[in-house]
Nucleic acid binder design. Sequence first.
DNA 1: GATAGCTGGACGCTTTATGTCCCGCCACAC
DNA 2: GTGTGGCGGGACATAAAGCGTCCAGCTATC
Lengths: 340, 340
Amino acid sequence: MRDILHIQKKLVPDLVQVMEKRYKILHRIFVAGTMGRRSLAASLDLTERTLRAELDLLREQGLLDAGTSGVTLSEAGRRLLEELEPLVKELFGLSELEEAVRLKFGLRKVVIVAGDSDESDDVKREIGRAGSRVLAQSMEPGDIVAVMGGTTMARMAAHLKVSAPMKDNWFVPARGGLGESVDYQANTIASELAKRTGARYRMLHVPDHLSEDAYQSIMQEPNVREVVDMIRSARIVVHGIGDAATMARRRKLSQETIDELIRDGALAEAFGYYFDREGRVVHRMVTAGLRLEDIEAAGTVIGLAGGRSKGEAIASVMRFGHDDVLVTDEAAAEEALRRA
Amino acid sequence: MRDILHIQKKLVPDLVQVMEKRYKILHRIFVAGTMGRRSLAASLDLTERTLRAELDLLREQGLLDAGTSGVTLSEAGRRLLEELEPLVKELFGLSELEEAVRLKFGLRKVVIVAGDSDESDDVKREIGRAGSRVLAQSMEPGDIVAVMGGTTMARMAAHLKVSAPMKDNWFVPARGGLGESVDYQANTIASELAKRTGARYRMLHVPDHLSEDAYQSIMQEPNVREVVDMIRSARIVVHGIGDAATMARRRKLSQETIDELIRDGALAEAFGYYFDREGRVVHRMVTAGLRLEDIEAAGTVIGLAGGRSKGEAIASVMRFGHDDVLVTDEAAAEEALRRA
DNA sequence: GATAGCTGGACGCTTTATGTCCCGCCACAC
DNA sequence: GTGTGGCGGGACATAAAGCGTCCAGCTATC
């Protein structure tokens, strides 16, 4: 059953939303018995006109009747609702989950794709696609977008598609190199995104693991300085979320540092910071780029991550509380809620 | 599984249509391997621009790729199509059936509702509803509509709904009384239809089973004459279809006549005429009203009938060849095709 | 008999969809 | 190598649909 919807959603992406909207209308009318258009519109948070279009359609389908004192479910409508009831949870589970996660972490928007990234590459791809849509919707002319690295980010970049060239937008890497494969570096991703959108980009070449002296002197370089300033004024930040242990290993942190992270209860990593269960910052990478205050100042911070194994890390970063939008998958969302 | 498709047809019929369109596009591309937009548009009977909007969306969904020599299904697209195949029949089966019936009998339009009228009153109601929609779509200002009697016609009348009053339309009974319950007489139905649409109507009171003399003299009556002239110039004719034996009994024909009908192979009845298997007229009722030549002259002839038991009769009347639109149910349509 | 709340009609504005044309490009045939 | 037909994709004016808003007429209820 689930499959069917999954298939249909590919063909008609907003199928479920529409079904949900109509279900809610029918359900509301069922509960109220008889109800007028205005009060119905108010209680469903629809405008009178759009509701009316829906009501006309539903009546056309013979699901409801309009009397002089409001609309009522017809016999067929009641029967449909009854058949629909057991499917509701499965049908709209994701949007309910989205809402639950949104409220739990006080986010502006949550997008959840079906499945578990840990188990299927399709789901990973879907997160990338969903993320790219969110980014495209969020961008406005003139915006500077700072992006992090990682495979999820790379996938997001690969799916971004815009209708019109964004000639006066900039993409910048949120931080210097991360010692990863070049495909997954923030620099690469920023340039890829710029290429795909017709926007401009700047790169930031600052090696990891610099001594304090070397760091200070490289920061004096005018063109490094310039890029860093741009990064710090980014209006949109897009980042992946990792679990602390994996990230520490990938970044080849010293055993000493890793021990320290463990002692401090570091669970999650995002934009170069490590967070404990409560969302407190317990460690930060020493490298040029985005600072916490820049994150706070950014208008839109978008987090991308999926897979049940990342649920805890996601919960931790969300508790940190400066993300606005989360794009994840079903398994991770459930896990994050459970941990929170 | 079947439930959900069933529900969707009721709740989101518009989206089901969209799904069908997109399925057809994918399917066509799959068959062709790779295909250009223009030739695709031509073969699917869509305009280039609308097709393009669909293609953009499907590509957005990752279902197809656009190369230099046309569009091709992506791996995901092929997979989707494969998964979709078993659903196609259930989802769009009726429209394929509609098309098959349409071609078989050379009709302008065929509307089929799911189910079997013999088994469920809901299906009968649906035929009425569908018929009323067809009629509303067919009517244009100034049109005279001639209607027959019968329960199906009565149900159709009960569901007719128009957006604007049809002040300059007329409804007339196609024939005089049929000796049935008053609710199902053509006169009653014509007046009901007029009341529901804001149109005007005329009645025709000519008893069945008149002697030739009485018939001739009643036809001299100016106001009978007037109504008959109107009937004969109807631009739209709506009629039910019955099987010959049942109708003969209902009309209390003499045993002699019934024997004659049987001998001549009468199978079906419509607008007062009896037809054999090949659609030839084998008998006609002697009463005032629509003649065969008026049927032939009418712009739109709409036939309504459902139930597997009527399949053969429907096939017979359709072979007669002067209907333009058929509204029926799934079982009757299958049976009619089988018999033809 | 007054009143509140209902449906359905109307209308102008905004957004979206659509028809149409064109350009540069690539593959293929010659 | 070169010509050519068909391709995708951009552009744009226009038609159509969607939507917010208001109103008339009606009816149930107090």
